Each structure stands twice: as structure tokens, then as C-alpha cells.
Simulated assay, not measured.
Amino acid sequence: MATSNMPAVNPRNHPAARTKMQPSQRRRTSLGLAGKYAVAIATSLIAIFPILYILSASLNPNGSLAGSAGLFSQLSLENYLDLFDDPAQPFGAWFVNTLIIGLMTAAGTVLLGGLAAYSFSRMRFSGRRFGLITILLVQMFPQLLAVIAIFLLMKGIGDIFPALGLNTHAGLIVVYLGGALGVNTYLMYGFFNTVPASIDEAAKLDGAGHARIFFTIILRLSAPVLAVVALLSFIATVNEFVIASVLLTDPSKKTLAVGLYQFIAQETSANWPVFAAGAVIAALPVVLLFFALQKYIVGGLTAGAVK
């Protein structure tokens, strides 16, 4: 008697059985999708409403937030024009200062953090593990706790090197670089470990040194993490207030975060619509930088897993 080699058919996989299960499956799928869409819509509304309110307040010519209850009930560019009318509050200079400090801090953070991360990732030396742990422990204490020490240190440095002392952009950038070096070094260190060491070995066989490997190979393969570090560093610099307010005293050298506070510092003369207009303009560089680096952040992260 011949034996059939055909596999047994599972009753659940029979077309008739699948047809009977389709209505219940469709209901569960529809309910699941409806729940996901509801959560996504609610989250989007919560995130978008503050942005719409700030935009509405910046376009409100009444000079107070009381008339901004109705979104976009009145539209005027008067508040944006008032930002550049007062010589005592040079908004244009604050904007340029913020761009310079933010971009230089982001570039310095990527370079110094990348060099430190490459050393920890590719080189073996005594104290390597202790150094990594120390970086994490130091980051547990916010830079805000060291404001007094930073002020005294910068004052002493200014007596010797005035270009790096108080009320200088270079001194503020140096302080920002020191505060951002630890966490970004550890972040890039983890990404550098995903780059195969065989690439380094092949480059060394061709006569390449550590400097050439780092600048021509590692940095190009690590574009995603470099974009993330640059973006986070720029955002942190633009939003930082305490240290900038302590180190910068000249009105023309202040940053946007410190300068905009003057519009609402006095309760009797607080001008919230002008402050909202300044906040909208201050957010533009961050948004533009995000869109410029988006292809590295989104597309590069998926490609980085196979490099």
C-alpha cells in the first residue's frame, strides 16, 4: 500500500476556517487601530497646542496674554517689529551671539567628544574603565551646582587671559564644552564600538595612523551619532540661562535666553507678546538644524547597524 507524503492539513489553516475567523479578527484589528490613532491624535494635540498658543500670542497686538485666549483672533506683526526697535535690548545682537556660541559649541563638542570616544573605544590603556565610570559619575552632578566655582575660575583666568575670562563668548564656549564632554563622549563611545575593528586593522595595513583612521573612516561611518550630538549640544546651548546670565554682563554680548528674560523680568512692565515673538524666532535655528540633520538622524541610524 502506497504511503502519501503530503503533509497533514491543519484545520485552523483551512480556507473555510479562516473565513469564519475573519469578522472577529477584523473587529480586534479595528479596535486596536482605533486605540492607536486615538492615542496618537491626543498626543499630537497636547504637543501642538503650546506651539499654536505661542504663535497666537506673538501675533496679538494687545500687549498682554489676556487677549490671547482666542487663538489667532487678531493678527499683527507689531510684536516682531518691536523686537528690533529698542537699542537697549538689541535682539539682533542676541540672535547672532546665540548662533555663534551654539554652532561653535556643537562643533567643539563633536570634535572633542569624538576624539575622547575613539580613544576609549580603540585604545587599551590603564585606567580606561575607571575613566569611563568617572565620566558617568561626574554627569550625575548638574553644572548648575558649580556656578560659583565657574565664576571664580573664569574670573581668575580672565586676569591672565582676558580673552577667556568673564563677559567673553570664548570663555562661555569653553565652559559649555567642559559640561557637555562627558555624556556625549559616552554616547559616541557606544556607537564607535559598533564599527567593526577589522576596518581599522585593514587601514593600518595600508599605513594609516590613528588620526587618518579617525578623520577619514570613523567620523564618516559615525555620521548618525555625530548629528545627534551636534543637535543636542546646540539645543542645550540655545536654552541655557543660568551660566550665561552669570558670565555675560554686557547687554550686547548676551544670548537669547538671557536677553529675552528682560522683557518679562519686571512684573509691572512684562511684555509677554514680544517675549513670545522672540521665542518663536529663537526656535527657528533649532528647527532648521533638525531638518538639515534629519537624513542622518533617521536614515543614518538604520544604516549604522550594518556598518
Rank of each mutant, 00 (worst) to 15 (best):
A107S: 07
T109G: 07
T109M: 07
V110P: 14
L111V: 01
G113I: 02
G113E: 05
G113L: 06
G114R: 03
Y118I: 01
R122V: 01
R122T: 03
R122G: 02
R122F: 02
M123N: 08
R124A: 08
F125C: 07
F125S: 11
S126E: 13
S126D: 15
G127H: 10
G127L: 03
R128W: 11
F130E: 02
F130D: 14
F130N: 12
G131D: 14
G131Q: 05
G131A: 10
G131Y: 06
L132Y: 08
I133V: 06
T134R: 12
T134Y: 15
I135V: 12
Q139W: 07
M140H: 10
M140W: 02
M140R: 05
P142W: 10
Q143A: 14
L145Q: 10
L145N: 01
A146D: 13
A146W: 10
A146V: 10
V147I: 13
V147H: 00
A149S: 15
A149N: 04
A149D: 03
I150L: 09
F151M: 12
F151N: 12
L152A: 11
M154V: 12
M154D: 00
K155W: 14
G156W: 13
G156Y: 12
I157G: 08
G158K: 08
F161G: 04
P162F: 04
P162Y: 10
P162K: 03
A163Q: 10
L164F: 11
L164N: 04
G165T: 02
N167I: 06
T168L: 07
T168V: 00
H169D: 11
H169T: 02
A170E: 09
G171E: 11
L172Q: 14
L172H: 09
I173S: 03
V175R: 03
Y176H: 14
Y176D: 06
L177N: 07
L177T: 04
L177M: 03
G178K: 01
G179P: 11
G179M: 13
A180M: 14
A180P: 05
A180E: 15
L181C: 03
G182C: 04
V183H: 15
N184T: 08
T185F: 00
T185A: 08
Y186G: 07
Y189I: 06
Y189W: 07
G190E: 03
G190P: 07
F191G: 05
F191N: 07
F192Q: 00
F192K: 07
N193G: 12
T194A: 15
T194P: 05
T194H: 12
V195F: 05
V195G: 04
V195S: 10
V195H: 04
P196H: 01
P196F: 09
D200G: 12
E201G: 09
A202Y: 00
A203L: 04
A203E: 06
L205Y: 15
L205D: 13
L205W: 04
L205N: 08
G207L: 04
G207Q: 00
A208P: 03
G209I: 00
G209K: 01
H210R: 00
I213K: 05
I213Q: 09
F214P: 03
F215T: 01
F215A: 02
T216H: 09
T216G: 13
T216S: 13
